[in-house]
Amino acid sequence: MGNSMVIGGTAVYVPEERLTVESLADQGLLSQNEAASLLGRGMASVPCEKALPSPDMLDLTLHALLNRFRVDPERVRYVVMPYLYYSFPYTKDVLGSLRRKYGFRQAVCFSLRDQLCSGYLMGMYAAGKLLEASEDEASVVLLTVEKCLLPGQRYGGGVLITGDACAASLLGKRLGGDRVLAVRSVTDIRTLQQGKLKNRADDVPNYFYFVNLAKVIRRTLADAGLDFGDLKVAIPNNITQETWRQLAVLLKISPELFYTEGPSVSGHLNTCDLPVNYARLALEGKLRPGDYYAMISLGNGGVIGCAVCQKGNDPPVLARRP
């Protein structure tokens, strides 16, 4: 996919409340060894939304996006969601309600949730394909949210703890914003099954993913006409720092290229990791107009993604509760 798509704006909602590792240990949801492991990795707390259910988090974030970037609802042709872990045990029509509230009369709303671990980049990839077949003025809203419903869902097994967040991005062909020079997203279920067969367990060693991940990153950079040396930063999803250090060795690049502070600041936000990390870097001035950057994701379902972009002038917006 070439330079036919633009990220016209991004809004993120990250709750101000924090849930600490110590409080989870005090509730008996973590052992002392598990808590010590997380603290040793710099994960002391995560954002936690105590008041708003996930549909209200989506509403709040979408409102901020539409208001800040002056989105014409008549131009929105699709509203797309990637895979969500814990967010919708509801009978209400969440996407339909948002469609009606914000006047997306021409929009088709759908979720990619049946594709395990389909993340933000798979949503972006799908949006690009949809835009290729749409009129030039059409746009896509990409929505994602993470909210644990039960405290026991926070713990990610030794190295991760899950926080709450929400993000919304506007994608189109004729918008101002960050140019998407290339994006790829693939699912290799053989990766998952090979890992299980080798270990006779329901976990997958990281190296089973690395070869395919390295190929996707290199091919996406080639599609964009860039090399690693052109990138200001590579923004990964919030999995273990060791993953990106090992990948840097395979790619023969400096591990300093990867932004790896996400887990210690936000914990694991699942499909919200990338837009939240991007927003943080942009608002802190670590990504400036004209900079090239890559977003990279790796999911346990075998989903691999990479997008190479050039920063535009508009900063992302932080949604806040009234």
Rank of each mutant, 00 (worst) to 15 (best):
N3C: 01
V6N: 04
V6D: 07
I7T: 08
G8P: 08
V12R: 09
P15F: 03
E17S: 14
V21N: 01
V21L: 04
S23A: 10
A25M: 12
D26P: 01
L29W: 02
L29D: 04
E34A: 15
A36H: 13
A36L: 13
S37P: 00
L38A: 09
L39W: 01
M43P: 01
M43W: 09
M43H: 05
A44H: 08
S45I: 06
V46S: 00
P47V: 13
C48F: 15
E49T: 07
E49S: 08
E49P: 01
A51R: 12
S54Y: 07
M57H: 02
D59M: 11
L60Q: 03
T61N: 01
L62A: 04
A64S: 15
L66K: 02
R68Y: 02
F69V: 13
D72W: 09
V76K: 00
V76N: 00
Y78N: 06
M81L: 12
L84S: 11
Y85T: 14
F88M: 11
T91N: 11
V94A: 00
V94D: 00
S97D: 12
L98S: 02
R99K: 15
Y102M: 06
Y102Q: 09
G103R: 11
F104S: 09
R105E: 15
Q106S: 13
F110Y: 09
F110V: 04
L112W: 02
L112H: 02
Q115T: 11
S118Y: 03
Y120V: 05
Y120S: 07
Y120M: 08
M124E: 10
A126E: 05
A127D: 02
K129W: 05
L130M: 10
L131D: 05
D136P: 00
A138C: 05
L143D: 06
L143M: 05
T144P: 02
V145D: 00
G152A: 06
Y155W: 02
G156V: 07
V159W: 13
T162V: 11
A165Y: 12
S169N: 03
L170C: 10
K173D: 00
G176K: 12
D178E: 03
D178M: 01
V180C: 06
R184N: 13
V186K: 07
T187I: 12
Q193Y: 05
K196I: 15
K198W: 10
V204I: 14
P205N: 14
N206W: 11
F208R: 11
F208P: 04
Y209K: 10
F210R: 15
L213R: 04
L213T: 08
L213W: 05
V216Q: 07
D223T: 04
G225P: 03
D230N: 12
L231Y: 03
K232A: 13
W244K: 09
L247I: 13
A248I: 14
V249L: 09
S254C: 09
S254F: 10
P255W: 10
L257K: 12
L257N: 07
F258P: 01
Y259I: 06
Y259S: 03
E261I: 03
E261D: 15
G262P: 06
G262H: 10
S264Q: 10
L269A: 04
N270Q: 14
P275M: 14
V276W: 06
N277E: 13
R280F: 07
E284G: 06
K286Q: 14
R288D: 03
G290R: 03
G290I: 04
L298M: 14
G299R: 08
G305Q: 04
A307V: 07
V308D: 05
V308H: 01
C309D: 08
K311Y: 01
K311M: 05
N313D: 13
R321N: 06
P322G: 10
